[in-house]
């Protein structure tokens, strides 16, 4: 409980810090929405040229985009800043964090919580809402549960990806932008029906790394469509399980990263 209060205090401090630069804060608040707006616009533009991409209509595709965007925006706001770990390691901020009586990861996230990305989360969920309304979903209790869970689990999954790829910096400080291949790359991957990808690429990202269960499979289950790739319809409900596994892996990687840091210094 006391620990929770400490986290709340850290989070509010960050909000007050950000608000002390009011003009930049507003620009960045709206600029960040712009990024997600463009992601959605890209999909609309592509559908101008064709009635179907990978066998999916625009309405169906937007549902996939909605789940992915809402989940990604959520993860990006809460956890995305962990990709600054490289800088934290280099400047010694990590040392300063390690001498405080709280776990390192939540401290780092809350110390730099990007409040300016909040509006983006709202936009992501609005797109998801419109997508749900645009599709004729035959609602069952299971589907209601799924539409509530899918974006949150997408958020958990992307958070895990953010933490895992940022942890790379513990072993490789000069890893540059390699993490974004999986974070932003993962978002792009999950924004389209996975039937568009070549088979080895799809097997790697969708099934081996689990990105297929973030938005694509839940969307199929919601729409009541058969998977052109042959997975049964209950696989849409795997998204919490896949997110959980990803989170556990991220936790293990982060912990061993910290252990590595402790044994090598920066």
């Amino acid at each position: 409980m006391a620990e929770f209060r400490a986290y709340v205090a850290l989070g509010t401090a960050q909000i007050r810090s950000a608000a002390s630069y009011r003009a930049s804060f507003l620009v960045e608040l709206f600029g960040n929405v712009g990024a997600t707006v463009f992601d959605v616009l890209t999909v609309l533009v592509l559908f101008r040229a064709t009635p179907a991409v990978g066998g999916f209509t625009l309405r169906e595709a937007i549902l996939i985009v909605g789940i992915s965007s809402a989940g990604f925006a959520l993860a990006d706001m809460l956890v995305g800043n962990v990709d600054k770990l490289k800088t934290y390691v280099r400047t010694g901020t990590l040392d300063a964090v390690l001498v405080r009586p709280l776990p390192a990861l939540p401290q780092l996230l809350l110390m730099d919580l990007p409040v300016r990305k909040a509006l983006r989360v709202v936009f992501g969920f609005v797109v998801l809402g419109l997508a749900v309304a645009a599709n004729d979903v035959a609602w069952t209790p299971a589907r209601v549960l799924l539409i509530a869970l899918a974006p949150l689990m997408a958020g958990v999954f992307f958070s895990a990806i953010f933490v895992t790829s940022a942890s790379l910096a513990f072993w490789w400080v000069d890893s540059g932008e390699i993490g974004s291949a999986f974070t932003y790359g993962g978002r792009d991957f999950t924004s389209y029906p996975i039937s568009v990808y070549g088979s080895w690429f799809r097997n790697l990202f969708a099934y081996a790394m689990g990105f297929g269960f973030v938005a694509y499979q839940p969307a199929l289950t919601l729409l009541g469509r058969d998977d052109p790739l042959g997975l049964p319809s209950w696989t849409g409900f795997l998204s919490p399980l896949v997110a959980l596994v990803a989170a556990v892996i991220a936790g293990v990687v982060w912990r061993s990263g910290i252990r590595h840091y402790r044994s090598t210094g920066s």
Binding site: L46, A49, T50, V53, F182, G185, D188, F201
Partner: peptide, 18 residues
């Protein structure tokens, strides 16, 4: 990695386009 992502998507668009 981004090359693969964009290329597959655009090729899928081409497949369905007039």
């Amino acid at each position: 990695v981004f090359g693969f992502l964009r290329c597959y998507v655009l090729l899928a668009v081409a497949e369905g386009a007039a």
